[in-house]
């Protein structure tokens, strides 16, 4: 049936049909098992891949480290910049990946502020903090961060989200 159909003619004349060892020629002639590599198609695919990866390339890298249990909430937020990170994870508070207790939050943030001002004397203190927490967390656990940041002079809080 294939021999009489128009499909056969198309299959025989196609590039794949000619280069593939699986081409349904129906003859007994032995064909080599080597096939031509289509370099043009390969270079095209590589070029498209490179363009796509270059467009999604970020020179800043990962600003936050997310554990596998942490799922950020999603929102149409703004781009994230590098600021001190306060994290609530597995029932514990972390400031710049250093564990702190609830009672020490204010003091740790004050220390952070002090060290920033010492390192960049003369510069105005930006008072920006990034808060990272799982989307299912209750506010009673985040309230301590909000309160401590206000007490330590961090007036701007950036809640880390997945961009919609």
């Amino acid at each position: 049936m294939l021999n009489s159909s128009i499909v056969k003619g198309q299959a025989m004349s196609s590039v794949i049909g000619e280069s593939s060892i699986l081409a349904p020629t129906g003859t007994d002639r032995k064909r080599g098992i080597t096939s031509d590599l289509l370099l043009t198609a390969l270079i095209d695919a590589f070029s498209i891949l490179i363009v796509f990866l270059l467009l999604s390339f970020s020179s800043t890298g990962d600003l936050l480290s997310l554990s596998k249990d942490t799922e950020l909430p999603s929102a149409a937020g703004e781009d994230l910049e590098r600021h001190p990170v306060v994290k609530f994870e597995s029932g514990k508070y972390f400031i710049e990946n250093k564990e702190v207790t609830t009672n020490d939050l204010v003091q740790a943030l004050l220390d952070l502020r002090k060290s920033h001002q010492e390192m960049r004397a003369g510069e105005e203190f930006p008072g920006i903090l990034t808060v990272q927490a799982d989307r299912r967390v209750k506010f009673e656990q985040l309230s301590a961060i909000v309160q401590a940041s206000a007490q330590a002079g961090f007036g701007d809080i950036k809640f880390a989200v997945l961009m919609k």
Partner: peptide
């Protein structure tokens, strides 16, 4: 892609 929602606190 991680972004942020900004909130201002009274200080």
């Amino acid at each position: 892609r991680i972004g942020s929602v900004n909130v201002k606190q009274a200080v």
